[in-house]
Design a protein around this nucleic acid. Sequence first.
DNA 1: AATGAATGAGAATTCATTCAT
DNA 2: TATGAATGAATTCTCATTCAT
Lengths: 202, 202, 202, 202
Amino acid sequence: MALDTRERVRKAAVKLFADKGFHGTGIRELAQESRLSTASLYHYMGSKEDLLVDIMRTCLQSLRDSATAAVADVRDPVQRLTTLVKLHVKAHARMPKETWIVDNEIHVLSPALRRSVIALRDEYERLWADAISDGVARGVFDTAHPAVTRIALLEMCNGVARWYSPRGSLSLDDLAEHYADMALRVLGACPHGSAEGQSKSE
Amino acid sequence: MALDTRERVRKAAVKLFADKGFHGTGIRELAQESRLSTASLYHYMGSKEDLLVDIMRTCLQSLRDSATAAVADVRDPVQRLTTLVKLHVKAHARMPKETWIVDNEIHVLSPALRRSVIALRDEYERLWADAISDGVARGVFDTAHPAVTRIALLEMCNGVARWYSPRGSLSLDDLAEHYADMALRVLGACPHGSAEGQSKSE
Amino acid sequence: MALDTRERVRKAAVKLFADKGFHGTGIRELAQESRLSTASLYHYMGSKEDLLVDIMRTCLQSLRDSATAAVADVRDPVQRLTTLVKLHVKAHARMPKETWIVDNEIHVLSPALRRSVIALRDEYERLWADAISDGVARGVFDTAHPAVTRIALLEMCNGVARWYSPRGSLSLDDLAEHYADMALRVLGACPHGSAEGQSKSE
Amino acid sequence: MALDTRERVRKAAVKLFADKGFHGTGIRELAQESRLSTASLYHYMGSKEDLLVDIMRTCLQSLRDSATAAVADVRDPVQRLTTLVKLHVKAHARMPKETWIVDNEIHVLSPALRRSVIALRDEYERLWADAISDGVARGVFDTAHPAVTRIALLEMCNGVARWYSPRGSLSLDDLAEHYADMALRVLGACPHGSAEGQSKSE
DNA sequence: AATGAATGAGAATTCATTCAT
DNA sequence: TATGAATGAATTCTCATTCAT
């Protein structure tokens, strides 16, 4: 049924856009990967760009929504940032293609669409900004340039999408743990007890 | 004279590849930006891909060479890493377009060229890897997953190319300082005696 | 019910073909304007071309039939031509789209269909030709090149479809009157005593 | 050399646009008729629409300029209109394709271009309007609706492009003469005594 | 050194139409 | 009656590149 096909198209697009970039992906490849003719492709999408923006929005919305929910009643800044980092890292490890696309292909969008996606991304990043500034305000974080630090941390975590493989030696949980640890270190939040090795929370 | 023209072409390519991506940049735009006809363009370059690879190599070689030199007789891992980070960050802040291209367009290269560029990048990253593992071996760095940490730090620093503007409030030195500080924190290098805050070296 | 739908399709086609031309009108626009899916469209028409030819035939047949009837027992050439012109002008003013299509899109038809439509048009124009040659024979019309004059008059009258608006200052009757007057002048039929002389207005 | 090719392209376009309409003419046909590849075609034109608008402008400008010149120092309205009609008719007989395109394909232009072409056409038609209103003012023309009459006359004359063949029995001069005669009749300018009386033939 | 001319291949998208349901 | 799905062929136009001058 239609839904499956639509899903197939999206999957093909995610794969190809991530592999070869938006401009590097042709409509024909997309059709072939979707097992459709190029003409049929257009039953399931508006334009190539619509497809891209749709992928981005879905990904960002899910990230924003799950992060918002996860952090909703967490007061402690350390806990809050830990949660955000872990969620971010896991998302990037589990959906490396989608997140890579979001992180790297925004510039190909036409201005109006770009703005809308960036707005979404900003909503998400505000969660990080709030957690950080809150921590700084409460004195549990120590960083000279909170805004720069936020960007640095986000970039650091985005990187996961580029290399993480579930077949490697590092489990998803350990990965997330490690990144959370690094983030807290960057923020100068001695992770109370001791090293991240034992951190049972999560 | 030829050299100036060649330089103009390269500059145009750097600008356009960074702005719109390799596949998003057409030969005609390149010609126009270089104030040349498309045909003339081919006096100054091999193919579009050659131009790209040339930009990448030049950038990576300069990075690798200056880093190698800067670190050549620095024994202290903390100092070594500090030096590497600052150099990396400054390079990314000063040549955001070139470094962005290196960091994001490798995947468009054909396999053979890609391998050669990756080899170069690996040479450079080895400097980081060595500094880190050395620090870990000597017990001045503390990180559970050195390889992951290296990648994380590199990604964190690469991000600078995406946003830093010399017209902002942060000077280049302060920026580099801040990133070095973050990197050392990530590595658990209590900036012992000499707090990195005052680090006069650099 | 079907008839209504069929009528809707035809109306949509008339509108669009007149607005944007046959080749300028897509099946999808047609479907949209008809509030139907493209597939459903094909329940109500053969092909796009069939639809066009149908519109043309209907229009020409109605024109031919009403003209034939109107002129059936009018012997006086002046009266006959007056009647023809008025009818023609009114038809073009009332059905500007249909008549525009007939007058301007014949060339898109495939040869066989084109011939059939042209045959119909020729039947209609024969009424004009007969009236004119009759008038010339009887000496009430005076024109050096009757065939050329016929074409010239027809073109002149066709023009009405391009610009007449019922919302303008000219009533349909006045319009028809004026054109009839012009036609008779062209034919050198001093409209004195007889015929359209009744019309004092104008 | 380039000019010849450019001319070939234009000629091909004139032929095809007139034969099959703008939308009915494909880029491939255009290329074939120009003895060029479709890609090469784009060395000699901007877009298909640019080509069309260029043809229209050239035609209208030449018409406007020659008419303006021809009528420049003709005071007598009868003479003026005679000149305009003859020139118009001869232009339509000699360049039936170009004039047909101007007269029938304006509606395919995008709004901005359409406006510019219509402006040009309006400039030209003003010459007619002026001649007519001048004649009416001086009492040598007699028409109830000058504006309508102007349109009617223009349409009448445009028709020539649809059928005139130099291989027919009517010479260009006779043709022009006949149309001028018809026009003057429509305007109620008894042609005897005055003006175009010279024309002994007819 | 520089470029106008030229192009085969490919870009994204739409075409009119059919068919199974 | 109505339509989602599907498509081969066509659409306009651009691609990176070569070559003769």
